[in-house]
Protein backbone atom coordinates (compact mmCIF):
# COMPACT_ATOMS: atom_id res chain seq x y z
CA UNK A 1 0.00 0.00 0.00
CA UNK A 2 2.77 2.38 0.96
CA UNK A 3 4.44 1.54 -2.32
CA UNK A 4 1.33 2.59 -4.23
CA UNK A 5 0.96 5.87 -2.38
CA UNK A 6 4.59 6.60 -3.09
CA UNK A 7 4.18 5.93 -6.84
CA UNK A 8 1.06 8.09 -6.90
CA UNK A 9 2.60 11.06 -5.08
CA UNK A 10 5.82 10.78 -7.04
CA UNK A 11 3.89 10.91 -10.33
CA UNK A 12 2.05 14.04 -9.20
CA UNK A 13 4.92 16.10 -7.87
CA UNK A 14 8.37 14.75 -8.63
CA UNK A 15 7.70 13.43 -12.12
CA UNK A 16 5.01 15.90 -13.06
CA UNK A 17 4.01 15.41 -16.69
CA UNK A 18 4.13 19.12 -17.48
CA UNK A 19 6.96 20.47 -15.40
CA UNK A 20 9.41 17.60 -15.61
CA UNK A 21 8.65 16.12 -19.04
CA UNK A 22 6.64 18.79 -20.89
CA UNK A 23 4.09 16.27 -22.04
CA UNK A 24 0.76 17.58 -23.26
CA UNK A 25 2.04 21.13 -23.59
CA UNK A 26 0.03 21.94 -26.70
CA UNK A 27 -3.39 21.60 -25.14
CA UNK A 28 -1.98 22.91 -21.86
CA UNK A 29 -1.10 26.20 -23.56
CA UNK A 30 -4.15 26.40 -25.76
CA UNK A 31 -6.95 25.57 -23.30
CA UNK A 32 -5.62 27.33 -20.21
CA UNK A 33 -7.26 30.70 -20.85
CA UNK A 34 -9.97 30.17 -18.20
CA UNK A 35 -10.09 27.94 -15.14
CA UNK A 36 -13.38 26.36 -16.20
CA UNK A 37 -12.16 24.86 -19.46
CA UNK A 38 -8.90 23.97 -17.75
CA UNK A 39 -10.76 21.91 -15.15
CA UNK A 40 -12.79 20.19 -17.88
CA UNK A 41 -9.78 19.22 -19.94
CA UNK A 42 -7.81 18.22 -16.85
CA UNK A 43 -10.60 15.91 -15.73
CA UNK A 44 -10.79 14.39 -19.22
CA UNK A 45 -7.04 13.75 -19.14
CA UNK A 46 -7.19 12.04 -15.72
CA UNK A 47 -10.03 9.88 -16.99
CA UNK A 48 -8.41 8.89 -20.28
CA UNK A 49 -5.01 8.26 -18.66
CA UNK A 50 -6.64 6.18 -15.92
CA UNK A 51 -8.30 3.95 -18.51
CA UNK A 52 -5.67 3.66 -21.22
CA UNK A 53 -2.56 2.96 -19.14
CA UNK A 54 -3.97 -0.18 -17.43
CA UNK A 55 -5.32 -1.46 -20.77
CA UNK A 56 -1.98 -0.86 -22.43
CA UNK A 57 -0.27 -2.51 -19.47
CA UNK A 58 -2.25 -5.68 -20.15
CA UNK A 59 -1.53 -5.50 -23.88
CA UNK A 60 2.16 -4.96 -23.23
CA UNK A 61 2.51 -7.81 -20.76
CA UNK A 62 0.23 -10.40 -22.29
CA UNK A 63 0.75 -9.76 -26.00
CA UNK A 64 3.75 -7.68 -26.93
CA UNK A 65 6.72 -8.04 -24.60
CA UNK A 66 9.29 -10.76 -25.15
CA UNK A 67 7.95 -14.03 -23.82
CA UNK A 68 4.55 -12.51 -23.07
CA UNK A 69 2.73 -14.99 -25.27
CA UNK A 70 3.71 -18.03 -23.19
CA UNK A 71 0.21 -18.13 -21.73
CA UNK A 72 -0.99 -19.38 -25.13
CA UNK A 73 1.76 -21.87 -25.75
CA UNK A 74 5.25 -22.27 -24.22
CA UNK A 75 6.77 -22.40 -27.70
CA UNK A 76 6.04 -18.66 -28.13
CA UNK A 77 8.59 -17.76 -25.46
CA UNK A 78 11.02 -16.21 -27.93
CA UNK A 79 8.45 -14.08 -29.77
CA UNK A 80 9.08 -10.37 -29.24
CA UNK A 81 6.40 -8.08 -30.67
CA UNK A 82 7.39 -4.99 -28.74
CA UNK A 83 8.10 -3.04 -31.95
CA UNK A 84 4.33 -3.03 -32.45
CA UNK A 85 3.72 -1.27 -29.16
CA UNK A 86 3.44 2.26 -30.60
CA UNK A 87 0.70 1.28 -32.98
CA UNK A 88 -1.19 -0.78 -30.40
CA UNK A 89 -1.01 1.94 -27.76
CA UNK A 90 -2.17 4.66 -30.07
CA UNK A 91 -5.05 2.52 -31.35
CA UNK A 92 -6.26 1.91 -27.78
CA UNK A 93 -5.93 5.61 -26.99
CA UNK A 94 -7.74 6.77 -30.12
CA UNK A 95 -10.69 4.46 -29.53
CA UNK A 96 -10.92 5.38 -25.83
CA UNK A 97 -10.92 9.07 -26.70
CA UNK A 98 -13.75 8.50 -29.14
CA UNK A 99 -15.67 6.82 -26.34
CA UNK A 100 -15.05 9.65 -23.88
CA UNK A 101 -16.08 12.15 -26.52
CA UNK A 102 -19.41 10.42 -27.04
CA UNK A 103 -20.04 10.21 -23.29
CA UNK A 104 -19.26 13.87 -22.69
CA UNK A 105 -21.37 14.95 -25.67
CA UNK A 106 -24.32 13.00 -24.29
CA UNK A 107 -24.13 13.89 -20.60
CA UNK A 108 -22.43 17.28 -20.47
CA UNK A 109 -23.17 19.21 -23.66
CA UNK A 110 -22.04 22.51 -22.12
CA UNK A 111 -18.64 21.07 -21.32
CA UNK A 112 -18.54 19.54 -24.80
CA UNK A 113 -19.13 22.93 -26.34
CA UNK A 114 -16.47 24.52 -24.16
CA UNK A 115 -13.82 21.92 -24.90
CA UNK A 116 -14.58 22.05 -28.60
CA UNK A 117 -11.77 20.78 -30.76
CA UNK A 118 -9.57 19.86 -27.83
CA UNK A 119 -11.46 16.75 -26.83
CA UNK A 120 -10.60 14.86 -30.01
CA UNK A 121 -7.12 16.29 -29.67
CA UNK A 122 -6.65 14.39 -26.39
CA UNK A 123 -5.90 11.48 -28.71
CA UNK A 124 -2.76 13.32 -29.72
CA UNK A 125 -2.13 14.79 -26.28
CA UNK A 126 1.41 13.64 -25.65
CA UNK A 127 0.74 13.08 -21.97
CA UNK A 128 -1.61 10.19 -22.75
CA UNK A 129 0.74 8.31 -25.04
CA UNK A 130 3.61 9.40 -22.80
CA UNK A 131 1.91 7.76 -19.83
CA UNK A 132 1.76 4.44 -21.67
CA UNK A 133 5.35 4.72 -22.91
CA UNK A 134 6.69 5.57 -19.45
CA UNK A 135 4.72 2.62 -18.08
CA UNK A 136 6.47 0.43 -20.65
CA UNK A 137 9.90 1.89 -19.93
CA UNK A 138 9.69 1.73 -16.14
CA UNK A 139 8.34 -1.82 -16.02
CA UNK A 140 5.86 -1.62 -13.18
CA UNK A 141 5.47 -4.99 -11.55
CA UNK A 142 1.70 -5.23 -11.59
CA UNK A 143 -1.37 -3.55 -12.98
CA UNK A 144 -2.24 -1.81 -9.71
CA UNK A 145 1.08 0.02 -9.71
CA UNK A 146 0.58 1.02 -13.33
CA UNK A 147 -2.87 2.37 -12.48
CA UNK A 148 -1.52 4.33 -9.52
CA UNK A 149 1.11 5.84 -11.80
CA UNK A 150 -1.41 6.78 -14.47
CA UNK A 151 -3.84 8.38 -12.02
CA UNK A 152 -0.99 10.27 -10.38
CA UNK A 153 0.21 11.60 -13.73
CA UNK A 154 -3.32 12.65 -14.59
CA UNK A 155 -3.77 14.48 -11.31
CA UNK A 156 -0.40 16.17 -11.79
CA UNK A 157 -1.45 17.37 -15.24
CA UNK A 158 -4.79 18.54 -13.84
CA UNK A 159 -3.08 20.57 -11.10
CA UNK A 160 -0.70 22.12 -13.59
CA UNK A 161 -3.38 23.26 -16.02
CA UNK A 162 -5.67 24.61 -13.29
CA UNK A 163 -2.77 26.53 -11.74
CA UNK A 164 -1.68 28.13 -15.00
CA UNK A 165 -5.29 28.94 -15.96
CA UNK A 166 -5.79 30.74 -12.65
CA UNK A 167 -2.60 32.73 -13.15
CA UNK A 168 -3.55 33.62 -16.72
CA UNK A 169 -6.95 34.87 -15.58
CA UNK A 170 -5.22 37.27 -13.21
CA UNK A 171 -2.46 38.28 -15.56
CA UNK A 172 -4.99 39.89 -17.84
CA UNK A 173 -4.95 42.87 -15.48
CA UNK A 174 -1.21 43.37 -15.51
CA UNK A 175 0.90 45.36 -17.88
CA UNK A 176 2.93 42.81 -19.82
CA UNK A 177 5.30 44.07 -22.56
CA UNK A 178 3.39 43.84 -25.84
CA UNK A 179 5.52 41.23 -27.66
CA UNK A 180 5.45 38.99 -24.60
CA UNK A 181 1.67 38.99 -24.23
CA UNK A 182 -0.23 35.73 -24.47
CA UNK A 183 2.06 32.92 -25.44
CA UNK A 184 5.42 34.33 -24.39
CA UNK A 185 4.52 35.17 -20.83
CA UNK A 186 2.75 31.83 -20.43
CA UNK A 187 5.94 30.03 -21.37
CA UNK A 188 7.99 32.02 -18.89
CA UNK A 189 5.47 31.55 -16.07
CA UNK A 190 5.41 27.83 -16.76
CA UNK A 191 9.19 27.84 -16.54
CA UNK A 192 9.05 29.58 -13.17
CA UNK A 193 6.45 27.11 -11.93
CA UNK A 194 8.69 24.33 -13.15
CA UNK A 195 11.55 25.70 -11.08
CA UNK A 196 9.25 25.76 -8.06
CA UNK A 197 8.22 22.17 -8.72
CA UNK A 198 11.86 21.14 -8.86
CA UNK A 199 12.03 21.63 -5.12
CA UNK A 200 10.18 18.32 -4.88
CA UNK A 201 13.00 16.61 -6.71
CA UNK A 202 14.95 15.44 -3.68
CA UNK A 203 11.88 14.09 -1.94
CA UNK A 204 12.36 10.43 -1.13
CA UNK A 205 9.18 8.47 -0.71
Amino acid sequence: MQELVSIFVKAIFVENMIFAYFLGMCSYLAVSKTVKTGVGLGAAVIFVLGITVPINYLIENYLLAEGALTWIDPSFASVDLSFLSFIMFIAVIASMVQLVEMIVEKFAPALYGALGIFLPLIAVNCSILGGSLFMQERQYTNIVEATAFSLGSGVGWFLAIVAIAAIREKIRYSDVPAPLRGLGITFIITGLMGIAFMSFMGVEL
Binding site: F19, A20, Y21, F22, I171, R172, V176, P177, A178, P179, L180, R181, G182, L183, G184, I185, T186, F187, I188, T190, G191, L192, M193, G194, I195, M198
Partner: peptide, 28 residues
Protein backbone atom coordinates in the same frame (compact mmCIF):
# COMPACT_ATOMS: atom_id res chain seq x y z
CA UNK B 1 20.27 21.99 -18.38
CA UNK B 2 17.25 21.73 -16.12
CA UNK B 3 13.88 21.33 -17.83
CA UNK B 4 12.28 24.67 -16.80
CA UNK B 5 14.90 26.72 -18.60
CA UNK B 6 13.79 25.28 -21.92
CA UNK B 7 10.45 26.99 -21.38
CA UNK B 8 12.09 30.29 -20.57
CA UNK B 9 14.35 30.01 -23.62
CA UNK B 10 11.39 29.43 -25.92
CA UNK B 11 9.58 32.29 -24.19
CA UNK B 12 12.48 34.61 -24.95
CA UNK B 13 12.61 33.44 -28.58
CA UNK B 14 8.91 34.26 -28.88
CA UNK B 15 9.57 37.63 -27.31
CA UNK B 16 12.32 38.46 -29.80
CA UNK B 17 10.27 37.24 -32.75
CA UNK B 18 7.23 39.29 -31.81
CA UNK B 19 9.23 42.38 -31.05
CA UNK B 20 10.51 42.18 -34.63
CA UNK B 21 7.27 41.10 -36.20
CA UNK B 22 4.63 43.22 -34.51
CA UNK B 23 1.66 41.81 -36.40
CA UNK B 24 1.99 38.63 -34.34
CA UNK B 25 1.42 40.42 -31.01
CA UNK B 26 -1.56 38.98 -29.14
CA UNK B 27 -4.18 40.53 -26.91
CA UNK B 28 -3.58 39.82 -23.28
Amino acid sequence: ILPPMALVTVGVIIWIQRARNTKLVEEN
